[in-house]
Design a protein around this nucleic acid. Sequence first.
DNA 1: GTCTATACTCAGATAGAC
DNA 2: GTCTATCTGAGTATAGAC
Lengths: 192, 192
Amino acid sequence: MYLCAMRPQKVEDKVLLQGLMSVLRSKGYDGASLNDLAASSGLQKASLYHRFPGGKKEITAAVLQFANEWVQKHVYTPLTDETITPSKRLTQVLANIDALYAGGEDACILRALSMDSGIELFGSQIKESMQLWIDGFTTVGEALGFTKKEAQSKAHQVLISVQGSLVVCKGLNSRVLFESTLKSIKNMYKKG
Amino acid sequence: MYLCAMRPQKVEDKVLLQGLMSVLRSKGYDGASLNDLAASSGLQKASLYHRFPGGKKEITAAVLQFANEWVQKHVYTPLTDETITPSKRLTQVLANIDALYAGGEDACILRALSMDSGIELFGSQIKESMQLWIDGFTTVGEALGFTKKEAQSKAHQVLISVQGSLVVCKGLNSRVLFESTLKSIKNMYKKG
DNA sequence: GTCTATACTCAGATAGAC
DNA sequence: GTCTATCTGAGTATAGAC
């Protein structure tokens, strides 16, 4: 429905959510204040409440929804696309993941919200996105000829090593382990 | 120096730090309020300020110091103890790690403090503990006959997969991937 | 739809009695 | 050393003009 009487949005939904996500992924739920969120979005606090009447909880839920759509579009869907060879799917998705985390520089929103407060409020959304990620990699593993059990194990290994390398890269203040992790994921799927 | 005129401490230093750590590891730096910290320690807020005049920053720094001593005592030292066979060192340390994280139930304090605010304040302490962990596993890898390069790579892999599995276990609300990760670490060090 | 101004709550931190 | 009581600022959230 088109309501031409309404004042135009100053910031597009997608741009807005990207700004909000960048704050939440780096500061976490408790660390991200509404001032931070407003500043990142280019809107005032009150305007954020207009867009998200539920406040910070609703903002965060929307950001997680946005993240889940990203996983759907850039991980799950390409990994399960049978018009492409499994090997090429894998290469493409690993490149997408590299971009998402800026080569190990940026944090994962799922991890950032996995502290007590975040899990209590958004546990089911976090679980859903992680499961989608695992399902995608399981599918490509089977397409590459591994058994279902092997493919599941590898999929878990992918998620674990991506999350782990992001944590370690933050801690050591170096991105090399993220890049080497992506390479070793590629190797993991070579038949041996 | 023994000062018998002083009023006895209500809570021992070690017990105090354990309580404080349990809050910080589950809620993170921003999520842990002084009320939370006081409640977990059995002291009032003002008493915490007596013990830690620098407030939350000093509390957190002390907890990280405590954590670093734990890694020293239960990871680094046993892994480098040449009076024990390398294989037994590994088994023992993996059991220690299993206990530290309560089989995947509890979070890692290094991870919990690795958001922006924590990294800015405590980055060097976090890095130090992670490096100690890596050094210990590198030593045991070399003792098991791997080249220095292989041993370093495996040590990185250990830290990454432990941290990663803790994140994924939180997200999926299941501990099975932590236990399987510890088993696969053990396998990683079998010569092939 | 966006803004400025403001209400209200809880955070971190301190004062001073015991 | 520990406590109760209190101060001050930042946090979330709302009111109402434009």
